[in-house]
Amino acid sequence: MTETMNFWAEADSAGEAVFIACDALETLRTHADADIAEPTICFNDLYRYATDPEATVKEGFSRVLSTNPKLRNDMRILLERVAPLQPISRAAAASGSTTTRFGTGFQMTLRESQADREQFYVIIKLQDQSCTPNTLFVINDSEWCDRVPLPKPTDGTVQLLLGSNSTLATSLRDPKTDVFMR
């Protein structure tokens, strides 16, 4: 049942009443956020996410995957089993406009666009040109996990163009991020 509060009666001044009302509103907001139900994730959900790019995932799945370190680690272990293209070395700390990371059968380079320094290309060179990955998985050690559909390779090269401020761009520039493809 909703309790009615009279902030004017409790406060000595209008300013204090506004302060009390704002405090109450903040408390309500905090409780409302806490009430958002986290979806229950089982192995089947992780497996479908890792292997079927068309599969729809539960509401909130991506949020839980990004924020739950144990789940993210499970996803990493799963991808090590099912993704043919895996990281070998991590990107060195970004020192300039180019960052390169190496994987089993691929090399990924981030290169700043000459047309707009706020955008950069993700260039994935595939060693085996018959290999056509369609999904890129990006897992950060501390806070993020996502998958991105890839365009078809042209002469063994897959290329994306990203805005520097996008979440994916930020994560790919982070040396603590690993990439998988399948």
């Binding site: 666009s113 000459q114 047309a115 707009d116 955008q119 290309y121 260039i123 365009p151 290329q159 163009l161």
Partner: peptide
């Protein structure tokens, strides 16, 4: 002109939209 390892692209309105 972009770096030689970049594939030529056509983008819309200066945005990162290939």
């Amino acid at each position: 002109a972009e770096a030689p390892d970049v594939r030529s692209v056509i983008c819309l309105g200066g945005r990162a939209m290939v």
